[in-house]
Write a protein that binds this DNA or RNA. Structure first.
Lengths: 189, 189
DNA sequence: GTCTATAAAGTGATAGAC
DNA sequence: GTCTATCACTTTATAGAC
């Protein structure tokens, strides 16, 4: 199954894939050209097409929004689980997810990837939040999560970009619990 | 100063500008081509260049992150002010801002526009929040705000996209106050 | 298996006719 | 002032030599 040639092919194929992930995450779908990816991987542009078929196929394999653990238990517990999931996303730089995130506003496939991933989590989480406006609560928890990830990894906002992940989640803990099962207050500052 | 010809020119120039805003907001910088913008405005592609100089110049005039009112007073009051600012952003579709937002991950100029606008607000707001970790608090309030706007207008998340703006802010009220001046809790769900 | 050469299409920008 | 024609360039994708 693995002659010397096949081995070599697998190695360059893997090199191309990580180069693609890196450039898609840094530049987005349109600006990360096949030529640039090939150069980053020290490979020939023709090989990229031969191995992956098309740029879209390559992107599909390089970008992924990834799955989260399902949330369980009470709204209090669900809030904590979503909080630690966020902490992981802040701690490391998930290149596959960043590739999808950076491209989602300009590439339809990337948008589908992110959107479908988010609504799936949303639906699953909604069952473990306060029953009034559960879907909106779940959507807002997703919005806060993606906002924090964007602010840190893509926008690199002062303060957020370099803070310890635990400090961020410590500051957001109250907010998550409020959204998950807090009462709805119209204006009683 | 305004002959009939000059009037006509101003009118098509304005038509081109609103067409540019629309397409930049819908497609992003790269995919909104000058030809498509001209077609949308029922004008000639050459005119677009003649009136605005270059695509970059056109984008600079079409996309803007906009200014918010300065926040004032106590942290409680600041939280309320930021909340009503968010409510406005949810209520209408600010095409200029959406053009900048959609392009910020793939076009350097758009990123600068958004980033500089956000850090300016952040710095201004930080002075009116709880003094411990004020900059991080301000950054997170910005992250939550941009996350909500993205979820509603760009991602069109279920629940968030069609909810009444007041319901969204009512649900986020507790979260904003927690982030603005809540105590830092490490894990006492 | 790998790479060269090129095709086919689309882009921003420009020169010049009307 | 407006529009036609085109330049110069870049992109993905393909055909075929080595």
């Amino acid at each position: 199954m693995s002659s010397r040639r096949a081995e070599q092919r697998n190695r360059t194929e893997a090199r191309i894939l990580t180069a693609a992930r890196k450039l898609f995450a840094e530049l987005g779908y349109d600006r990360a050209t096949i030529r640039a990816i090939a150069a980053e991987a020290d490979a020939d542009p023709g090989l990229v097409m031969r191995y992956f078929g098309s740029k879209d196929d390559l992107f599909a394999r390089a970008a992924a929004f990834g799955d989260d653990d399902h949330v369980t238990g009470t709204p209090e517990q669900a809030a904590e689980q979503l909080l630690t999931a966020l902490e992981h996303k802040l701690a490391d730089e998930p290149t596959e997810a960043l590739a999808a995130l950076r491209s989602m506003f300009t590439h339809p496939d990337a948008l589908s990837e992110v959107r479908s991933g988010m609504v799936a989590r949303q639906r699953q989480a909604a069952g473990h939040l306060a029953p009034d406006d559960a879907d909106l609560r779940a959507g807002l928890l997703g919005a806060v999560t993606i906002g924090a990830v964007i602010a840190r990894h893509l926008l690199r906002l002062d303060g957020v970009a370099d803070a310890e992940p635990e400090r961020v989640t410590a500051l957001l803990r109250g907010a998550f619990h409020e959204i998950a099962y807090g009462s709805i207050r119209s204006d009683d500052a």
